[in-house]
Design a protein around this nucleic acid. Structure first.
Lengths: 210, 210
DNA sequence: GAAAAACTTGACCGGTCGGTCTACTGACGG
DNA sequence: CCGTCAGTAGACCGACCGGTCAAGTTTTTC
């Protein structure tokens, strides 16, 4: 459906120069599209719906985004960026790898719960290869982030030896599933979920009660 | 997009009379569509793709199904039916509610793992109201099934008092999330998942080690 | 064996969708 | 005040999609 070229997925090739007004408009499109996709579905939300919704012409959309697919891909990219940012901000102060792990888990889960639109869009994205590919790439990055701390904790003998990549995958799995089940209403209040996630992951990794 | 009438969701109003050949064809469409939807996505798979794929004319599709949306709804309905069927078959022999609970959990999880196409389609369905509604209805039924056994176990003092509906929701949540994470590859081999699910749920409900 | 009912075909249709394009606006630098 | 260029509008386009239908074939029924 979209272009056949552009195999390098990072940083838009043109990288247009935007004025202040331009950045605002672009942001508005991103914002509005995210909410519409989340509550209406991707395909049922047409480009016309989006531009009509924010009261602009169709030209605006295609001035800022090469295609509808690219818009969604960019929503995903931004989300990943933002999630990592808030995770790293939370971690920055600590130099204990286990604590960094805990803070990272809390930050991630908090972010996911606060961005349920993204959570919902993500569910859709897993069902179509074009987007699932981007999701897998993003998850690999996030897992690498987590694995780094696990590796370090392992080096210090805080965690039993094993493949840090696999352990990180498990940890991210717990976080994702908890976020989803919280969003669906299975799990209770937010702070409970946080504690549960931390307990589950750290206890699981270290083999000790926290 | 689809009809406005038909508020009674059960049993197709016309209930066409099918010959043996008819049942086969109909089943072939259901089968093929399920696999295509699962691996290509619902919207990107057109009705023409489906009929071309099984080498028939478009008329065949609309002879057996009133619309594409209805086809998906029927896939969901069949899946729910089949899941409940295999669950009840597994349970039938036992008259201990706790054992019925365990057998039900194992049967459900086994079914979900064996029907990952459905699992994947389901993920899509949560993202569009038309189908999410059907999913919620189905879950309510499944939860009621589970709650019945919990209620009974509670009456016999095998489970601490509480709202059986809520407990059943939690149990089904565990099952769904485990199935999904198994499908994604987070969790390990099948039998491990089964034991984990049973331990988690029963231990959680009874407060005892199994 | 004929009437009826089940089934099949594929050309066709109306509508919508993603995307293009031309003409225009407006802000800003020099 | 003019040139430039980011930004904007929306008519327009080709493709395709879900769905229809008239005309046919096959199967069942009596």
């Amino acid at each position: 459906m979209s272009a056949m070229a552009a195999e390098l997925p990072d940083s838009d090739p043109p990288a247009r120069k935007l004025t202040a007004r331009g950045r605002d408009r672009r942001h508005a499109v991103l914002e509005y599209a995210t909410s519409r996709f989340a509550e209406n579905g991707y395909h049922p939300t047409s480009v016309s719906d989006i531009v009509d919704g924010i009261g602009v012409g169709k030209g605006v959309f295609y001035w800022y985004f090469p295609s509808k697919d690219d818009l969604l891909l960019e929503i995903l990219r931004d989300a990943l960026f933002d999630l990592r940012r808030s995770q790293e901000a939370e971690i920055a102060d600590s130099d204990d790898p286990l604590e960094r792990l805990e803070l990272g888990i809390r930050a991630s889960l908090t972010w996911l719960v606060a961005n349920q639109d993204i959570l919902r869009i993500t569910m859709f994205c897993w069902t179509e290869e074009t987007f699932a590919r981007a999701l897998r790439k993003g998850r690999r990055i996030i897992i690498a982030d987590t694995a780094k701390h696990i590796q370090e904790a392992m080096d210090r003998g805080l965690i039993e030896p094993g493949d840090p990549e696999v352990m990180a995958t498990a940890v991210r799995g717990v976080i994702d599933e908890l976020a989803r089940s919280y969003a669906v209403g299975v799990t209770k209040v937010e702070s409970d979920v946080l504690d549960l996630a931390v307990r589950l992951c750290l206890h699981g990794l270290t083999g000790k009660q926290s």
